[in-house]
Simulated assay, not measured.
Amino acid sequence: MRSYLLNRYVVLAIFISMSLLFSGCQTAKTEKTFRLGIIPSENGQETLKQFSPLVAYLEESMKVKVEPYVATDYNAVVEAMRAKHIDAAMFGPFSYIMAVERAGAEVCVVRVGESGAPTYNSYFVTYKDSGIKTLEDLKGKTLAYTDPGSTSGYLVPAKVLLDHGLSTPDFASVIYSNGHDASLLAVKNKQVDAAAIDEMTYNRAIKKGIITKDEVPTFYTCPPIPQSPFAVAKDIDPELKQKFVEAMIKVHELRPDVLKPLSASKYVTATDDNFQLIRDTAKALKLDLSKIK
């Protein structure tokens, strides 16, 4: 009898253990994950560091696991959305319209700068004693862009140069550095004569003591650029989208410290019309959005 009861208890214990294990597996399978892409405006490690506070805030606010994905270049984030590997992404204005064209991305919120401005600027920079004072002085020099998909590191500066009668054949060489910070260092170390970078990276580098205004001065400020947006995939879970948008438009009230590394004061809702200027600029440069790599 004791043996019979013991066997029953063993069977019952095994049944309960298997039930708990199965239940745990089911919970793991159904737990929602929010996959967030981020363009690499600076090196991947630094970019992830800047966005880590936001990722932690989103996990807390949305009650889901947030997986950040910092790509090797701007195009890779666009392709990740096209391949349905991410649910949303922080794009630059130009990479956003590429994502609309190729992945059906839908803008939802846009950054407002630390000064409250809806726009930001791109700078042309050079090194001290380069002799470069104007855009015309760039002829025959070496130039660094950031990435073919970068708004402030390529698109707008290229349009400015075109308006001044300058294009790629006018330079000794043109390179893509794959990061605004990399472009700054290339200029500082005199590997290139000039570069086009965004104002946020320039100001951060000065604050960190990486460069000084004397070492790497600006010599031209490009026209204002619409601030960078977050966009979601066209087939995103509507509940996830709602949670994400609500979290982003409340972040300045709930966790303003999260915004400081992102050079933002808040995020507000946006529409695709905000970026018509970028489309017009790409058209003026005769760029095929479906083929940019």
Rank of each mutant, 00 (worst) to 15 (best):
K188Q: 15
S122V: 08
A99L: 03
K234R: 13
N43V: 07
S41I: 13
Q276V: 05
S290C: 00
P256F: 01
K213V: 00
A195V: 05
V107H: 10
S19F: 10
G140K: 04
M81C: 09
Y96H: 06
L185Q: 11
A233V: 03
A80V: 05
D257M: 13
F22S: 15
T212P: 03
P40T: 06
I197L: 06
R102C: 01
G165Y: 13
K63Y: 01
H252K: 10
V125Q: 05
Y127I: 05
P40G: 02
E239I: 08
F51E: 06
A71D: 02
V112G: 05
L48D: 04
K188N: 11
T218W: 01
D170E: 08
K32R: 04
S183C: 05
I175P: 01
S61T: 05
T201P: 08
P229E: 04
G116A: 08
Q276H: 07
C25I: 08
N7I: 09
L58G: 04
Y57A: 14
P261K: 04
P229M: 00
A76L: 07
I14S: 07
E67Q: 10
M81D: 09
F51H: 12
T119Q: 13
S19Q: 12
F51Y: 15
E253R: 14
I236H: 00
F22K: 11
K32E: 05
